[in-house]
Amino acid sequence: MMLSPDLPHATQAPLAEHQPLGTLHRGFSGHVFHILATEHSACLPADEMERRLIELGFVEGAKVTILHEGLFGRDPIAVRVNGTTVALRRREAMAILVS
């Protein structure tokens, strides 16, 4: 997979209407459109980050709902996905594009 330092794809037309899960708030409900991990998302390689998100159930098409937010910076968030609840930081959730 191509590794790019920032998010060039985010500016491209097809992806522009989809928002990263990390920018959304409690009560949001939608479907995963794409997983787009970059080297910036965490100290993990993008490919490893992508695999971990998939393992948590963030697969294209999965229904996601933000159930809870933390107090400081509304971070981390608790997301209902595929019948389970997972906690993750907004920084990691930026790699999950939802619609």
Binding site: S41, A42, C43, L53
Partner: peptide
Amino acid sequence: REASPPFMLDL
């Protein structure tokens, strides 16, 4: 300089 490792947890 390192970004912090991810926090992903099953509740």
